[in-house]
């Protein structure tokens, strides 16, 4: 009897905890609507979603290495690298440019994966270092300037409106995101990546080619960051070596707030969308609410630590210590 009670109680907590990001989002929306009535306007909500669509793809990409227990710190590097290299080769902004951005993103991710899996270096240091290298290449190619891509086709990828009032990037990013949620949950690749994150030695003994799936995870990360870069560059009509500087912090936080643990094996691409929405609503709402930028930093820190704390409640009994 007592055992039963305890069991139901535990489940309740878990349910509540799963709702935490949603509750945070609703609470933030209510607060910001009071701070600035313009926040809740349809056009502003579209703006939030458009901002989210770029973050979503990048964060979804980074989720793959994190699920494995690795990390990808080269987000900024891949954003500027794929954008600038592609725009240097094909500044016209046609279909070829689109393909190149994705392809170069994939290659840069692949390079990370090879260093991690084949030379057996920790991903933290590999991606920290390749971030320097990719940024360096981008600065070298542009001398720090930007390359404007003045093509309507290219601009329409983000700014066009197939459905009146809704920018294309929201719809396209949504489709890509659903494909990758499917890939992470329903396919062998996704399950294996998860297994490696859970217990790498067990996964290896089960006969999973660990090195191969590590490379795949980093390549997927690169591809999706490239995809985010595409929408970003299309929105701004340019590629620049100074484009991606704010993304590392925000996307990592989005992934973790979404419920994916940095230790790997827990969470999934599916929930990353909630973390992304929290981040973009915070950014947009605080700006519109006229909150001092310096205070914005502090508010962000409190909300993020708070959400991670709330999310981790059900697992707390399992973790005696935290590193």
């Amino acid at each position: 009897m007592t055992a039963d009670v305890r069991k139901t109680k535990k489940i309740d907590i878990k349910k509540v905890v799963n709702l935490v990001p949603v509750i945070v989002i609703i609470a933030l929306m209510i607060i910001f609507s009071f701070l600035s009535p313009a926040f809740i306007r349809f056009r502003n909500l579209v703006e939030i979603l458009q901002l989210s669509s770029i973050y979503l793809l990048i964060a979804a990409g980074v989720t793959f290495p994190i699920l494995m227990g690795s990390i990808d710190l080269s987000i900024t590097g891949i954003i500027v690298g794929s954008g600038v290299i592609a725009a240097t080769i094909a500044p016209v902004g046609g279909l070829f440019t689109v393909f190149l951005i994705l392809f170069i993103g994939l290659c840069l991710g692949l390079f990370n994966g090879l260093l991690v899996a084949k030379i057996k270096l920790p991903s933290f240091i590999v991606t920290l270092a390749t971030n320097f290298i990719y940024c360096g290449i981008a600065v070298a190619l542009t001398e720090g300037y930007n390359i404007n891509i003045r093509s309507n086709f290219f601009s329409n990828i983000s700014n066009g409106r197939m459905i009146p009032g809704i920018p294309n990037s929201i719809i396209l990013a949504g489709v890509v995101y659903i494909v990758f949620v499917y890939l992470s949950e329903k396919t062998k690749t996704g399950r294996y990546i998860m297994a490696i994150g859970g217990k790498e030695d067990v996964a290896a003994r089960m006969g999973i080619n660990v090195a191969k799936y590590k490379i795949i995870a980093f390549a997927l990360s690169g591809l999706l960051i490239g995809c985010g870069t595409l929408f970003l560059s299309a929105r701004l009509g340019m590629a620049s070596a100074r484009l991606g500087s704010g993304y590392l912090f925000n996307t990592l936080i989005a992934v973790v707030v979404g419920g994916t643990a940095l230790s790997g094996g827990v969470g999934g691409v599916r929930r990353t969308i909630l973390g992304v929405l929290i981040i973009t609503i915070l950014e947009n709402g605080m700006t519109l609410g006229g909150i001092d930028v310096r205070i914005q930093y502090m508010v962000k820190a409190v909300i993020l630590i708070g959400s991670v704390f709330l999310i981790s409640i059900p697992d707390r009994s399992r973790q005696d210590l935290m590193k």
Binding site: L115, T130, F132, G136, I137, A140, E143
Partner: peptide
């Protein structure tokens, strides 16, 4: 500065 970034990254990988 560009070369500087690349050298820093390469040295990090090499040293580690």
């Amino acid at each position: 500065p560009a070369t500087r970034h690349i050298v820093t990254g390469a040295i990090m990988i090499l040293a580690v």
